[in-house]
């Protein structure tokens, strides 16, 4: 049965590709890189080059407050679909999502709190957090 499961790396790569596609679908802009990393019952997502051209125009015109508001609202709008995507691909319930973006670096970081660690072929490879 475990043979049908993806390895941790395969699952992380699949999620990264699907998240990249989700951004392209919704914002018409493809981030240059999406990194997913499971640890314990959490998933860290780093999205590089996540800022759209429209937001970049606002920043270039000195309208940083508006650009931040736009980014915050875009993140809120994408979050339900992102949550559903993670739940479907990783087959695990999402308990919480913490998200933030920096306009000047174009980077978005998301910490996803899961109900459990995902089922993968090599569960021992998922690092345990220290507290």
């Amino acid at each position: 049965m475990t043979d049908n499961l993806l390895t941790r790396g395969q699952l992380e790569r699949k999620l990264s590709q699907e998240i990249q596609a989700l951004y392209r679908r919704n914002l018409g802009h493809q981030p240059s890189k999406v990194t997913c990393q499971f640890f314990d019952a959490k998933l860290a997502i780093i999205i590089e080059d996540s800022i759209t051209s429209a937001e970049q125009v606002l920043i270039d015109e000195g309208k940083n407050d508006l650009a931040e508001k736009v980014r915050s609202n875009l993140d809120d709008a994408i979050q339900p679909e992102l949550k559903q995507l993670i739940e479907e691909i990783a087959e695990i319930k999402v308990v919480d999502m913490l998200s933030d973006a920096t306009l000047n670096t174009g980077r978005t970081g998301i910490i996803v709190v899961l109900s459990n660690s995902p089922k993968v072929r090599n569960p021992e490879s998922i690092p345990k957090v220290k507290s």
Binding site: A44, I46, V95, D96, M97, L98, S99, D100, A101, T102, T105, R107, T108, G109, I111, V113
Partner: peptide, 20 residues
Amino acid sequence: VVDFLSDTTIDNDITGAIAI
């Protein structure tokens, strides 16, 4: 630290931060 991304959810009483 070249980037510090952080967020809090009040309902779940949790803060997460990613430092690059």
